[in-house]
Simulated scan of single mutants.
Amino acid sequence: MTGKTIHPDGWAPALGYANGMLMADGTLHIGGQIGWTAQKQFEAKDFVGQMEQALRNIAEIVRAAGGDVTDIGRLTWFVKDKGEYLAKQREVGAAYRRVFGKHFPAMSMLVIKDLIEDEALIEIEATAYIPAAT
């Protein structure tokens, strides 16, 4: 089975990876998204701001593949600071709903030591199913 690379228009090049891979069966695998913009700039320096940007990045990749956030079936979160996440639950929920509304796919969260990009506080990967792709 071969996949089609998904790269939203106007985004800086993905070097050595794909932001998304749309498989022939409609499964969309979205690589880990961090809190930088389409031009790979960290505008947000705080956890909630980076989390919201990562979710916006995921939503944009899904839309570039022909779907919408409601097509997302799984999110895996990688966070560097469990305490910050727990302390900001209200803000996390508000930011989440701004991007995904009341769509809550299956989720896992892992607390990790570090991420490749030094400024990154969170990384989120996703899996979606785009029915029109079949």
Rank of each mutant, 00 (worst) to 15 (best):
V79G: 02
Y17S: 08
H29C: 08
K113V: 08
F100D: 11
E123S: 11
G20L: 12
A64N: 11
G66K: 05
E43K: 04
Q41L: 06
E119S: 07
G31V: 03
G31K: 08
K40S: 10
Y85I: 08
G35A: 06
M107I: 06
D71K: 04
H103L: 10
G32A: 15
D46H: 05
K88R: 15
Q41K: 08
A120V: 03
I124S: 06
I130W: 06
A38M: 09
V99L: 06
T70N: 14
W36P: 00
E43S: 00
G31C: 13
I58F: 07
E91L: 08
L75I: 05
V111H: 02
A95W: 03
L22R: 06
A14G: 09
R90T: 14
K82V: 03
T37H: 02
A132R: 11
R63V: 13
Y85F: 13
T27V: 09
F104M: 09
Q39H: 10
M51Q: 08
K40R: 13
V92I: 13
Q41Y: 01
Y85V: 14
M23W: 12
I112M: 05
L15D: 15
I112P: 02
G83Q: 12
T2Q: 14
Q50L: 07
A24P: 00
G32Y: 07
F78T: 01
F100M: 15
Q39M: 05
L28S: 08
L86E: 15
G73D: 13
A64Q: 11
G26H: 07
T76E: 14
V79C: 02
L15Q: 12
I116T: 11
L121F: 02
M109F: 01
Q53A: 07
K82S: 09
F78C: 01
T37Y: 05
K102F: 11
G16K: 03
